[in-house]
Simulated assay, not measured.
Amino acid sequence: MHVGQHVARVRQLWQSRHALVAIPLVLIAAITVADIRTPETIHLGPLLVVAPAITTAFAGYRLTALIGALAVGGQSLIAVFQSGFNEDHIAQLIGLTILSIFAVVVCFVRDRRTEELAQVRSVAEAAQRALLRPLPDRLGPLHIASSYLAAEKEACIGGDLYAVARTGSRTRVIIGDVRGKGLAAIEEAVTLLGAFQEAAHQHATLPALADALNRSVFRHLTQFPETDEEAQEHFITALLVEIPDHSPVARLTLCGHPPPLLLRRGQVTSLASPHPAPPLGMVELGPDIHTVRTFSFQAGDTLLLYTDGVLEARDSNRAFYPLEQRAALWTKASPKTLVQHVQQDVLAHANGALGDDAALLALQRTTAPHTRLHISDPADDDGLHGRAHEGPEQVKR
């Protein structure tokens, strides 16, 4: 939000509050005048308590205290113009004073909690920026856009993660989803992101990178106490993507994560792997079995990466969100527009209530690489819909 827009918003809020203050002031004046002009047998003074009561809905404790004092002053004015401070007027003054003090206390406690919540959210937003650093719009030959939707309305961070790293003339990307919620999930996400930023520059292939991340996550998870019954259920699904600058291809390794979507010339293709590996951190399942899949990725193509929170968004009929079908509506959109459309569509599908955090990441190649390298098109029989490419394009460890 621009500074001018922020100032205008604050000014509008200030003006609206000033307009609302007129309501209790008018009530105090009207009730006071009406009680003075009516016979002494009719007592309207107790209605003055309405003024400080409604002020608590839109004002702080200082303004509420001022309105309460004016209400007490109005009650005193009524007593002066009538029969003086008799027992009824004194009782009404005491009651009005007590209720006004109570309203001020309520506002004070509410304002303190509001300030504490604002501080907590500020810290959470700072942690969000530290955990999920804003991705650049451009990186090498790629145009990038991302989005993070927290399941909890007041939350800013969770167990979903994504990051990019430049290693020489290629870009490596990770998107993942930590099993579980809360601080433990955030801690595991931080561990994986730190390991990725370091290991991405040290390993020549995606399987080697996946193996290193798998061991790092496993070492972190073994720190759980043995008495933790859920310790063995902790893992992280992840998807690794590598896009070289000078070849019209991209490579991916799946570790228990939903496959990405390739958007090309009005078509959407799911890049499901025939040999997916288990999630990271599950070393006890056996030796490293990570594979790499190479596919055509040309200028204008877009890769849409996501976490399962997108697929698991349900509507009022408990139907899952049809991402592949909906993404086909925006195959010609820029990454930023694509992410915005999917984000809004997911929220509309789920009526604004997601069951899990959801992350989106769109990558579009913007320039044609200068190379003679050729690879089969996704529409070919042995392309993305068929078996994994063999030979130099299929690496298994």
Rank of each mutant, 00 (worst) to 15 (best):
G4I: 14
G4A: 14
H6M: 15
W14K: 08
Q15M: 10
R17N: 07
A19W: 10
P24F: 00
P24Q: 02
L25W: 05
T32S: 09
A34N: 13
P39Y: 04
I42A: 14
I42M: 12
L47R: 06
P52R: 10
T55H: 01
T55Y: 04
T56L: 07
F58E: 06
A59Y: 12
T64Q: 08
A69P: 12
L70E: 07
L70K: 10
V72Y: 11
G73Y: 13
S83Y: 07
H89N: 14
I90A: 08
G95P: 01
I98A: 15
S100Y: 00
V105C: 03
V109K: 01
T114K: 13
E115Y: 01
L117N: 07
Q119L: 13
R121A: 09
A124Q: 15
Q128C: 03
A130Q: 10
R133S: 10
R133Q: 11
P134T: 13
L135M: 14
L135V: 12
L135Y: 04
S146F: 03
Y148N: 02
K153C: 00
A155F: 02
L161A: 09
Y162K: 03
R166Q: 13
R170L: 00
V173R: 00
I175W: 00
R179S: 04
G180P: 01
G180V: 02
A185T: 10
I186K: 00
A189R: 00
V190M: 11
V190C: 13
L192W: 02
E198Q: 14
A199G: 02
A199R: 13
A200M: 11
A208M: 10
L209E: 05
A210F: 06
D211K: 08
R219K: 08
R219N: 12
A231D: 08
A231W: 03
Q232N: 15
H234S: 09
A238C: 08
L240F: 03
L240W: 00
E242R: 07
P244E: 01
V249M: 04
G256L: 09
P260C: 07
P260Q: 06
Q267H: 13
V268W: 01
V268N: 00
S270T: 12
H275V: 12
V283D: 05
V283L: 13
E284S: 12
L285V: 13
I289L: 15
H290Q: 14
F297L: 08
F297H: 03
A299C: 15
T302L: 04
L303V: 03
L304Q: 02
Y306S: 01
V310W: 02
E312H: 07
R314Y: 00
R314A: 08
S316I: 14
A319C: 12
Y321C: 09
A327N: 04
A333L: 06
L338R: 07
V342K: 06
Q343S: 14
Q344M: 01
V346I: 14
A348R: 15
H349W: 14
A350M: 10
L360P: 05
R372Y: 09
L373H: 09
L373S: 05
D377G: 02
P378R: 03
D380H: 07
A388M: 01
A388E: 10
